[in-house]
Each structure stands twice: as C-alpha cells, then as structure tokens.
Design a protein around this nucleic acid. Sequence first.
DNA 1: CTGAAAGCGCTTACAG
DNA 2: CTGAAAGCGCTTACAG
Lengths: 370, 370
Amino acid sequence: MEIGAAAQSGWPDAARRWCRTQRIISHPSSRIAMRSTLKDIAQALNVSTTTVSWVLSGKGEQKGISKATEERVMKYAKELNYQPNLLARSLHYGTSHTIGLIVPSIGDLFYSSLARVIEQEAEKFGYALMICSSESDLGKENRMVDALRAKQVDGILMAPTKLSDEKIVSMLDDKYPFVLFDRYYPELPTNYVIIDNENSSQQLVSHLIRRGYRKIAIITTNTYLYTMDLRYRGYCNAYAAAGLTPDPGLYGVVEYGDHEVELERVLDRIFERVPDVDAFFFATHIFASRFFAYCADRGIGLDFGFAALHEEPLYSVLAPNFNVATMPIEGMGHEAVRILLQNIKNRSGKKKADAPKQGVILSCSLKYRD
Amino acid sequence: MEIGAAAQSGWPDAARRWCRTQRIISHPSSRIAMRSTLKDIAQALNVSTTTVSWVLSGKGEQKGISKATEERVMKYAKELNYQPNLLARSLHYGTSHTIGLIVPSIGDLFYSSLARVIEQEAEKFGYALMICSSESDLGKENRMVDALRAKQVDGILMAPTKLSDEKIVSMLDDKYPFVLFDRYYPELPTNYVIIDNENSSQQLVSHLIRRGYRKIAIITTNTYLYTMDLRYRGYCNAYAAAGLTPDPGLYGVVEYGDHEVELERVLDRIFERVPDVDAFFFATHIFASRFFAYCADRGIGLDFGFAALHEEPLYSVLAPNFNVATMPIEGMGHEAVRILLQNIKNRSGKKKADAPKQGVILSCSLKYRD
DNA sequence: CTGAAAGCGCTTACAG
DNA sequence: CTGAAAGCGCTTACAG
C-alpha cells in the first residue's frame, strides 16, 4: 500500500527549506543529498575550515577569532543546521564515544532492563550504545565482538555465553577495555560485575527449609556456567547447614535446546521420582513462567514453596508466597558502565602499568513472602 | 574488590602474543596500544598500502597482484589478526552499514522483542544496530535522532513519542531514510509499519459482546497517539455494531505520569461508577499486569471478560479466558527493516525522484480463549 | 587575527 | 605487476 501523491504534496515549505539547507554533490556513481560540511561553510564564507572548526568547537575566543567572523560562522552554521560528522571526528581522536553491549538475549526482560539502565548511564557520560543480542550463539557472539571492535567502539560490556574464552583472551591480549557482567570467567583476570549467586541461593533455600519445606526441587540449566554452579552450591549449602541431604531426584537440569519441551520433561520426572516434592527453587527466573503454565495445563495447584533468583512482573500475583532474590539491575548497570569508562580513560591516559582489574559482586535483595 | 597479581600472572603466552600483534604508537598525549593498520602491513612488507588494500579486499587477482605478494600479505595480515577500521571505510564510502533504532522503552517486553527481531533481520543484511530508548522523553528522543545522524547511521527506525513532529519533518526535508513503526503521523508522508489497531480492537470487543458482556471497560492512555485513538474507535465501533452504547463511566484514561498510581485511581473510579462492570479491554498490554496486581491486592476475583492488544507471558495463566490480539512482532520488524534498507539503497542509487513512501498495516492474530 | 598543511585509516582512479 | 596521490570530514600544531 502506498501513500498517494496527494499526501506528499502538502510540504512545500519543507521542500523549500530543503533547498536552502542541502547541497547536491556528486559521489561514487550517484547524486545524493548530503549534510553540509565544514568545507561548505568555509567556502561560502570565504574563511578557512580551520576558522570554522575553531568557532564551532567554541575555541573561537581562545584562538583569537574576531567577533565578527565568529558571528558570521555561527549564524550560517545554524542556518544550515550544521551537524559535525562524528565519524570523521572519531577517526581523528581515535575514540568513538560509543560502547558495545552484548547480551545473550535482548528479548529477555532481565537483559532488556539491564540494557535500559546501561543506556541511560552511558548517555549520562556522552556515550552511545551499540546493542547486540547473541541469542546464546557463540559464532554470533564472536562475530559481534569483532564487528564492534572494527566499528571502533571504545569498549565492550558483555554477558558472555561462556562457550569459549577465545575472544575474551584476545581482548585481554589487546588490552582492550571490556567488562563482563552476569557471567564471568573465574580463571581469567577480567573486569566483571556479578551477583552473590551462592549466598543468595543459599539464603532463599534456607528460608524454605526454615518454613518447613524438605523436598525442595532445584531447576537449573547451562551447568557449565560458573554462575549456575554457584547457585547449585548455594542450594546444597542450605541443605548441609540444616543437617539435611536433598533427594537426588529433586535435581532438575533443563538442557540447552528447546526449553519449553525440556522443562516439561524435567518436571515430569521430578513429580514421578519425588511425588511429595513440596517446593521449587528456580535457579533462573526464565523457568518460573513456564512452570506456572505447566501447572495450569495439568491442573496442578500452586501449593508449593517457591523461590527464584530474579522475578518477572506477575510471579507474586500468581504465587503470593513467591520468595525471590531481586537482581540489583540498577547497580549492575551502573557499576559495569563505571568500570568500563574508567578503563577507557585509563587506556588513553599515560599509565604504563595495567589498571588493576576490578571484580564487583553485588548482593541481591531478598524478598521473603512466604 | 580487586583481583590480585597472582591471578594476572598466569598469562605469559597471552603477553607474548600481545608483543607480536600490537604496536605502540604515540598519540595525542599518550601511548596506547592500537590495532595494526594497512600502513603497518605495507611498511613491514615493503609494498604500498594500495597493494595491501587490494589483496585484503579480495581484488588481488583482478588488479593483477602477483600470487607471491598476495600470499605474503595474506599471511602477515592473518598473523597480526588485522581488522580494518570500519570508521575509516565508512568515511570513504559515506555509508556506515549501521542503522539506528529508537523505542520509547527498551525495558518493555514488546519493544525489546521487536528490537530482537530487528537486530537479527539487520544482521542478515550486514547492518549493525544502535539502539536508543527515549523513555518517552521528547528531548531525549530529539537528541537521539541528532546523535544517530551525526554518527552517520544510514537510516533510522523509530516508534516516536509523537510529542512533536519537528525531527520527523526535518528528516523528511533532508530526504533522510527512516521508517516509523508502532506509531505514526497520519498527516505526514513517511514510511510506516503499524498494526490494524481499529479492526483488531473492534474484533476483540465484539467478541466480548458476543459472549454476553455488556459493561466492558476500556483502559487506555496517551490519547494523543493516533494509535490509541484508533483502538478506542474500534471499541466504539463494536458497541455500535451491536446496537449498544457503552456507559461513559467505563472509559478509563491513565494519564501520563506515574502509571502505577494512576491506574489504581482509574480502576477505583470505574468500579465506583459502574459497580457491575463485567469485562475489561486493555488498549495496551502494559495495564493488564498492573490490573492483576490491583485485583490481587484488593481480593477482587478475576471473573471478568478480558481482552487486550498484545499480551505478556503469564496473562493466560492468570486469566485463562484472556482474549488477545497478538502483535505481529516478526512481521513488523521484518517489514520495517525491509523498507528502511530499500530506502537506503534508493538514496544512494541514481534515482532522482523520491521513492514513494510505504505504509504497511499488519493484522494482529486474534486468540479467543473465552 | 587567520590559513595552509598534515594526519586519522581507509579506497580507488590514474599513471607507469 | 605496483605505487603515488587525492579524497572522505574532521582537528590542530605551526607559521605568518
């Protein structure tokens, strides 16, 4: 469906303005409208680009440009609505004032909330964001790191898939500024911002135990992630601290692949092996939603104890007793950006020695609703 | 907390590799590690940058570079892990192979899902994404448009706040490629991709009426958005088609500001003015979540008819009778990218005439669960 | 008070 | 078969 000519003809003044503010230049095999450049202004005003550049960057006075020239330039630039080409500027300075963000899945509310915080934080310091979603695909993730670096972003924030450390090592080798968050490589000297996975998990599970639950299932995934391992440890610690041992049948791993189907299988097995399971601990929020759907489908009531790391909007409505360790999203975003910018600054500073790497572990805030 | 020296000392080989692949150059007041350039390779191999550039861009054969030289260059480039500086390339070609995306709120699952689709779609064509979240702030949105253009993105996709059309008009003036989605300016000749707001709304409400509901509240917001207006019209059409008139007390507008508090006030008023309200139509999904929380807080049962444009994961679990018009997220992302890229191509093509603007209206898929 | 020149890292038309 | 040169749009040290 196309808008007819009638709809387009209503903009004579827009068209008129266009003629004033644009120039038609000849370019590789084409004629396209380009925004005006320093050179255009300089030529039109019969001054040098140097002068224009100085005026427009506010160094007019300092460089001793006459008030008259300054005003002519300012006025004309405003008229043209001149905007500097930041690509050219970046090329000169060797810094793009852009940072890259790579998350496993921008469609996940956790990561998109984080992206939101990070964007606001970055904007505060004059940095733009290039966001990439790796969709938990290592190949994609690797390509994204390369693409971001080739596009000369000043640094990268990333929650890695952790399926390989090749790119991480190469960024370390290059002393390229980057900060890992949510997940990290405990054996590599990188900057990172994570949460207190083990402790939060232990607190949650201990709380369930205190409340009298004894058959607490743990639903986890991607066990090669150190993050997940820590959460499992927290679960075990809680049992150990209570002098109890969890039934092995309560351990449910949703293997990578089709989560939806896999989770069902895992839950089926748990209900079969431990029919009197009385509580669920979700090592990651993504399974809680599916769990509710699972129960609704099968007409299973929600009279269990619940706990999870992170929650999404409706959990507590569905299960008012839902205990949760809330991820410090603000804090994570804030810290990650802070550390990255600090590293970027250090890099262009005079320091010869490496800046020491920073690892930040943030606490979740626990909400006991049980 | 900082990682001790011990942790860092484990990377002698990484360090060694670093020496080979990096160069230390002097730069404005600093010494920083830079990636290698064409020039580095050329100098090291005693050939011209021209030669290196041709080899590395695969034009070696065509330009008649000797096999021997070609191999030397290839080998050395690989050794250095040479990556071209895309900023420089962009400056030359006048195209950055990057597109900008501006959404009102990247923390909203609807927009983040859309962002995900758009990113994947863009990547397919070799385009990277710069994502910006305007947080429904016009000033921010305007700054974002300027920043993206200054950074020379090849085009912009945006769901505008619609609080002003200034930037839109200026992009039109400049013949700058952009596509609006989700929201648009019916009076401006822009490209856009939206959904069939009026029809979908009408279908949903008609369905509720067919099911016997007569006092259907509509919860809406930002009524200055044409999108929202259309949804309201759909609601009215449904009533009219059934030969009925809705009680004015059923019309609830959540004014901009603190949604959470505002919604409560609006709901309170509806329940007060129309105590026998029997169904709810949410003109946007964002209110449905809050509605559930509201009812939970007050112990109000969920025995209403429900319908909404778009849904989030747990709605149908909470209210199995939740009727919904599912947004065609894949389609919107796909179409928006397609149109934008087409416009970008047209722009750099030889065409003198404007490409006609494209408006696409996609249908929602209706799920009646009642 | 102002400008010519060199440089950032690429690409490519032109010359040999 | 290969290279010197100009240009993309900026910035800035240097010269006058």
